[in-house]
Design a protein around this nucleic acid. Structure first.
Lengths: 204, 204
DNA sequence: TGATTAATATGCGGGATGGTATATAAAAGA
DNA sequence: TCTTTTATATACCATCCCGCATATTAATCA
């Protein structure tokens, strides 16, 4: 994620013709399609249409379809991790942090640019995992990162026995995942919000 | 599932040439492929290879690819619901029932015939949902059934306030889902079992 | 300005895909 | 035995797939 500025921060462009599109924006458009349709159901034509770029341009910038998909996953992950880091860093109780974090997740899961499609990684990535070592290990990595981030949050804001803490951490991650699944299955925002409210007392 | 006997229970076979294969067995073989690869990555040739049947036979027996997929989902669902009904009906504490239920789930998720692929519905079905109304509504139906079955289990075996009960029911379903996701992401059986053990005290 | 380098636009090609049409084989009914 | 009905086997079709080869355009460097 070295280059997340909107107008490129002078990436010391070399000799040839300069790139005429924004890589991050293209990635974001591609992610939307991958998110909605999944890896296999997404064709290069779909990606070409979504980004406004030709297949050779995509190829030159991102590599083959799977590399493109992984790049899209990485972009989404970076965003999610930023949200989590905020939740950890922000003041307020554990309950406040969790509520804010879930609220942001619901916004993306139920009404994101791809529609009501849950989390791209927990749905399409997980589904694809057995077909691709690269995807499987990336999904495992994200899960590990999520577990650790939640663990940090609890380490900072939860006061209680270690066993209970571990239990609550696991349930907090599971709650995020159920929101993703249920959103993609058609659950509306209010339903998801009421799940969070029902479950929160048990997580703090 | 009117016909789950091995040798057909005389399905009043009509005039023409009798079917030379076991429909349930073919469905089961197909489900294994769909489970591992997901809907889109599974080709009719894959299904043909797995079942030993030709494409026209599959077509005649099950309809098009999506109908075949839905039939496979239904078969798996029936199995899962049977396990859940057992857990509800069996004597023993809530903790006993949950432990047995999760144990059966882990066996399927981590070491089923498709390998470590989680739950076919919660992974491939969920991923496919936005591309197919039929799949989405079926997944929603299964989720609803799961919620209700768990609710029945708690209604019978949990003694406590209604709000707490509802909270624990939701967490119990979420736990099942996290097992599915983590199995498909590569988590081994012991890891999944330790999640269940860590979480169980909070679910009862 | 001319040479060099890189990013586009166009179009193709080998192969896999889902689905079906036709022909053959095997059972039941008369 | 002969007709009818259904299942299987073979082969095919139109379409779409991913990836790339080629030619053109636009920028930098000398």
């Amino acid at each position: 994620m070295r280059n997340s500025m909107k107008s490129e921060s002078q990436p010391k462009r070399g000799r040839g013709r300069p790139r005429a599109f924004d890589v991050e924006a293209a990635l974001s458009s591609a992610a939307t399609v991958f998110h909605a349709k999944g890896f296999d159901a997404t064709s290069l034509d779909d990606l070409s249409d979504a980004t406004g770029l030709t297949r050779p341009s995509l190829y030159a910038a991102f590599g083959d379809k799977e590399a493109f998909y992984l790049a899209a996953l990485r972009q989404v992950t970076a965003d999610m991790e930023a949200h989590l880091a905020e939740a950890v860093a922000a003041p307020g109780t554990l309950e406040d942090s969790l509520r804010r974090f879930y609220s942001a997740a619901i916004a993306r899961y139920a009404e994101g640019p791809a529609g009501a499609c849950g989390c791209i990684i927990m749905t399409t990535g997980v589904a694809r995992a057995p077909n691709s070592e690269a995807v499987q290990s990336y999904v495992a990595l994200v899960l590990k990162g999520l577990d650790e981030a939640i663990s940090q949050l609890y380490a900072k804001k939860y006061k209680g026995a270690a066993a209970e803490r571990k239990s609550k951490e696991l349930l907090a991650v599971s709650t995020l995942q159920t929101l993703s699944i249920r959103a993609r299955a058609g659950a509306q925002r209010p339903a998801l919000e009421s799940i969070v409210e029902a479950v929160l007392p048990a997580l703090v």
